[in-house]
Every structure is written in C-alpha cells, then in structure tokens.
Design a protein around this nucleic acid. Structure first.
Lengths: 149, 149
DNA sequence: CCTTGACCTAAAGTAAGGTTGAGGTATTAG
DNA sequence: CTAATACCTCAACCTTACTTTAGGTCAAGG
C-alpha cells in the first residue's frame, strides 16, 4: 500500500542515497524522519527534495556541516515551499560565483607562471593564492619571507 | 653553517610545510631526500620548489596521488628546469579550465532552478549534473526514473 | 503460524591526509 | 665535554563521510 509516508528503503530508491547514508544523515541532522509504532523511520515526501539537495550540495563541494547550515533555514514543520528552496539556491549561486572567480584568478596567475616556470620562487604570484584560498587559519605565512640565497 | 643541503627543519620553515607532513610526503613518494651519515634527511634546494608545488596543487584540489602522477614526470637525478615545471603548469591550466567550465555549467543550471525552486524534481537540470561531475562509478542513476505522484 | 525481507541499533572498519606521542639518537653551541 | 636542540622511527590517533557487521525486531504473505 502506498501511504503518504515513505520507509527508508523507499526513499533510498527514490533519491539514490544509500540506506546507511540516510541513517548517517539523520545523526547529522540533515533529515528528521518520524517513527512508526514499531520504531521504523517514516519520511515525508518533501524529504526526497531534502536528500536530493544534499546530493547536489555535495557535488558542489559543500561539507555536511555547511549543508546543515543551509538546511537549517528551512521550516521544520510545514513542507518547504519553492520560495524556501529558491533562497538556498541563490546562496549557492553566490558561492559558485566566488569559487569560479577564485579559480579564474588562479588560472590567470598560472598563465603568468608558465613562462617563467617559477612555481615555487618567492616572486611567483601563486604564493599569494593562499590569501584567497584559505583566508582562515594560520597556514604557511612565512612562505615569502625567506630568500633563497 | 649553511650547506648546499637542507635539514627537514630548514625546509619546513622555508616552505611552510610542517615537518610531520614532509615526512608523510616522503612515504608517499612526493620527495626523496637523501640521508647523511647519522640518518637525518638532507633535502636539495630544488625540493623547496617541489614542496611548494605540492602546496599549490592541494589548494587546487588535487589529491596526493594525482600530485604524485605529475611529480613523477620530473627528472629524478638532475635538478628540474623551468621547462620541466612549465610542462606541469600547462597540465594544471587545462585542469583548471575544465573545472571552471564545469562550475560555470552548474551555475547556469542553478540559475534556471532559482525561478522554479525545483532542485529535487525530476525535471531539474541539476539532476544531470552527475553525468559531468562523477563520470566514473555507478552513482544514483535511477534518480530520474521515478515520478513523484 | 511461520518464514522472508525490510528494518533497527551500536560498534567497528575504511580511506585520505595528516598529527601526536613515546622512546631513542645526532648535532651543535658554549 | 656536555647540555640543549633537532632529528629519527613506529605506532596510535584524528577528522570526514560513510559502509559493514553482528545481533536482534517488525511486517506481510501464504
């Protein structure tokens, strides 16, 4: 019988996410299925979208933690609307834009390096890439400080 | 005294790569320092460039294995020339180009999705993203087959 | 009623890319 | 010469994102 709620097996088949991964996502707070009398998970249809979102976000390179941040902005009780998802899509778009811009900068710098073959010398522009790529954390700050004699 | 060869501590300071990471990279075949009489590692100056290369490649998202593939093309005995590095830079440039192109496709698809808010519906273009993003492996192929009623 | 298949939990295992710690040796400054 | 660093190896541990295994329960068909 086809009920309004889905078992874990059914939602796994519909989303392509493995059963074990879905259980893991629950521990990570990415989905919050209810339980039936026997303790089995029951998913809403809107969870299909949630899980597809997780899949897409991962392909875009987001970590579980980052995805959780985004998903938290969804309403917990009512089924998310298109507007709810659209807001998230826009955030993603901005992220992608930044990522593309970053890679483009990298590529252009690399172009400058092809001629000189420097890649590791103190005057190579790629050295500064760290400023952009890993803004947080200490990282190798002293890369530039030491002149090879 | 400043010799032609560098200790692990010296090369760590010059490259910003931690000592433990350098040792790890040796086990992974990314650097091959010689040893002095007492068994301590001695690095050539050109290893500074090698390690910087590893750092840069990782920022570009390459795995240790992929980096090893690239580094293998360097001469083992003579110090790599600018031409040797330039060849690698060009391969990187191609990779970056592909990566940028892929993300741009993603972004354009996402644009199409913002309007409809679909993101997980069977007609969402992002579903096909998997074709490009994970060409290898089975993956969730049946994502599209099942119409939510 | 009984079997089969789907489901449950908790714990351990996996791979990548390292870091940390213990116990011991080398090198170098004074 | 001696103490303080720096270095050595090996093994264990860490994080992320899961999968696998073991041992047991639930649900549906015949």
């Amino acid at each position: 019988m086809v009920s309004a709620l889905l078992s874990i097996g059914q939602i796994s088949k519909r989303t392509g996410v493995s059963i074990s991964a879905i259980r893991y996502y629950e521990t990570e707070g990415l989905v919050k299925p209810s339980r039936n009398a026997g303790g089995q998970r029951r998913f809403r249809r809107s969870d299909i979208r949630r899980l597809s979102f997780v899949l897409i976000a991962q392909q875009l390179g987001f970590s579980i933690g980052q995805i959780r941040q985004q998903i938290r902005t969804l309403p917990d009780e009512r089924t998310p609307t298109q507007r709810d998802w659209a807001k998230i899509s826009r955030r993603f778009r901005r992220e992608l834009d930044e990522r593309i811009a970053g890679l483009t900068i990298m590529r252009d710098r690399l172009d400058g390096c092809i001629g000189c073959g420097c890649l590791s010398l103190r005057n190579c522009a790629l050295y500064n890439a760290q400023d952009r790529a890993s803004a947080k954390g200490p990282g190798p700050r002293y890369l530039m400080g030491d002149l090879p004699s």
